[in-house]
Structures are given as structure tokens and as C-alpha cells.
Amino acid sequence: MNFIQRMFAATLMAVVAASVQADTFVFTAIPDQDETRLQQRFGKVADYLSKELGVEVKYIPVKSYAAAITAFRNNQVQLAWFGGLSGVQARRLVPGSEALAQGKEDQFFKTYLIAHHSANVDAAKSLADIADQLKGKTFTFGSKGSTSGRLMPEFYLREQFKAAPADVFSRVGFSGDHSRTIAQVQSGAWQLGAVNYSVWDTQLAEGKIDTDKVKVIWTTPTYPDYQWTVRGDVDQRFGNGFKDRIRKALLGMSDKELLASFPRESFVPASNQDYAPIKDTAKAIGLID
């Protein structure tokens, strides 16, 4: 029984550990590409913030936007690098939270629709021109909660077809990730897909894409995407003006190695208002009530 007592002690420890209040500033981030070695790469960002803010800063790696939102909501993290949609969802759940900064690229983000060569779809400037060619094909989004992989492409598809994707295409799936969307459309498993433009451009530059097999057929208009969002109560917890210092630290981040983790050229100021279009779109397609 000795052994069982020890086990109870273990659980108890785990529960106690979970409820200990640590005055550490915690943030999370899921980059839109290259999710390897998150801990090392963002550990350096944590060190940078720690130096700038004068408090201990830690980074928690998460797997999904939903997990990031959850952590943000239960105050496990106070700052998060969200996608456009996840930021909107998080700010709805945590009143008082605000968008502080976005990547320079995130002011004009866009999505590519891509097609396998067997789908015989032409590249076009306007979605209306190829609408008939798209109908009845198979189509994969990226992750369910992604702005560039799901929300915006779905919005433009709905706008064009006046119908849900499931009614336009013969089959609709969620590959879960931009890299996988590219791999699966390239292999012909899916005929069409929606992919984050910067992931596509990077992989194209790295020679990972065979343009005989898969090509971009349409580019969405631009929209705002990734941003830093902070909880409203950080000033109470870490002292007045803390939020402004975070903003300053983020905007002042100039080390190329740190920025490459996101990967962004630099950070520029952002506000909740910048994301109103995303919020409206999410409402329009029924992703938020």
C-alpha cells in the first residue's frame, strides 16, 4: 500500500503545482511555419522580453489555436501570438484584452488557392472567372481555426458561390496544416487547397514545390492576420504601464534571429479595431455567434 500512498502524494503534488501562483509573465506563440524547436527559438524571445520588461518571462509551446486561446483565457499565458481569427476569439473571451502589435507582413496578408494539374483549373485574377472550373472538385482547407487556411478562403468562396463549401465541392477536408495542404494537393490526393501565401512562397524558394504538379490559381484580397494580444489585467498584476512596456518591447524587437522565429520582418502597432473585418467574416460564416 506504501506504493499507492506514494501515488496519491504524486497526484497531490501535481495538483498543488497546478495551483501555485507564480509571478512569472508567460506567453505563447504558434508560428505559421516551422513549428520545430519552439522551446529553443521562443526561449530566446522570452529572454529578450525578460530583459526588456524586468520580470521573469517564460514561453509555453502549444499545439493548436484552440489550446492557445484556452491558455490565454485561463490566464496561464498573458500574452499570445495569435492568428487573426484566434485573436478575435480570444479577445471575445477575455474582456479588456487588446491587440498590441502585428507583423509588418500581417497588415496585408493573403491566401493562395492552389490546384493539382489534373484538376485543369487556370490561374485567374478574379475568382468569378474560374468559378465553374472549381465546382465539384475536392478541396482542402488547412487547420480548422486558421485565418489564412480556412476563414478567409471560405469567406471568399462563400461570397462567390453564395453557398457553403460543402455544397460547392464534392468533398471538403481539413489537412490541419499549410505544409500538409501543399503536400496533399501536390500528390493529387486533393484537387484544390487553400494555403497561407508566406508558407507557399518560402517552400517555393526552398525548392520543395514541384510547379508542374501544383500551382497557384487565385490570390485573395489582403486582410490582417497574426498579432500579439495581451490580457487586460497585466497592469494590475505586473504594475502600471506594463502593457505599454510590452508594446514597446515588441515593436522594438530588431534582432533578425528573434524575428525569424515568427517569421516576420518587424512588428508594427495594431489595435482591436484592425481586426474588425476578421470578426465580421467569422460571424458571416458562422464560426462565432
Binding site: A10, A17, A18, S19, V20, A22, T24, N74, N75, Q76
Partner: peptide, 10 residues
């Protein structure tokens, strides 16, 4: 067991 970072709001 991994250390729990920053969780407080039970």
C-alpha cells in the same frame, strides 16, 4: 512530470 508554468486560475 513536466513543470506547470504559470497556471493559477483553478
Amino acid at each position: 512530470l513536466p513543470e506547470t508554468i504559470g497556471f493559477s486560475n483553478s
